[in-house]
């Protein structure tokens, strides 16, 4: 399942979608909104996605992961819209026969989704706002 949604992500549901009775490991990555960046307080984040392409790019990442590891189940859910600190921005779940490959596959998927999926976030501070990573000469993005 690949989902881009404006609604709060139900982590348990994403896990269920990716579960498999033949799996011995279910690995879950939850990306959350931090309350600080560049030494400043983050009031909220604005996420946007080029949805059709984001789904297509995430699909490619999953296909690559499925070629490297034995994925018995998987799911990626990414939130868009306005998110406050503490809220869940992204969830990646993979099920595999054993734990080692579940960690590797989960990390591969989140790393590549972050690098390739056309999704953007803007940090809104008390005194301004900034598209994350858009320009050099600003503190390295965190995420």
């Amino acid at each position: 399942m690949i989902k881009i949604t404006e609604k709060a992500i139900d982590v348990q549901k994403v896990i269920e979608t990716a579960s498999s009775l033949s799996a011995g490991a279910v690995n879950v990555f939850i990306g959350t909104v931090r309350n600080n960046a560049q030494g400043k307080n983050v009031v909220w984040l604005e996420y946007e996605a080029y949805e059709a392409m984001a789904v297509a790019e995430i699909r490619k990442v999953i296909d690559e992961a499925a070629n490297k590891w034995n994925l018995l189940g998987w799911a990626v859910s990414h939130r868009i819209g306005t998110l406050k600190p503490g809220e869940v921005a992204v969830v990646v779940v993979v099920s595999t026969p054993h734990r080692k490959e579940s960690f590797e596959a989960c990390q591969y998927i989140i790393d590549n989704v972050k690098a390739k999926a056309p999704i953007w976030k803007k940090e809104v501070f008390e005194d301004g706002e900034e598209w994350v990573d858009a320009r050099p000469n600003i503190a390295t993005p965190t995420n």
């Binding site: 392409m53 989140i110 999704i119 953007w120 858009a134």
Partner: peptide
């Protein structure tokens, strides 16, 4: 056609 500035999802 879409313009894709540096992505920052996650």
């Amino acid at each position: 056609i879409a313009l894709i500035p540096p992505v920052s999802g996650g």
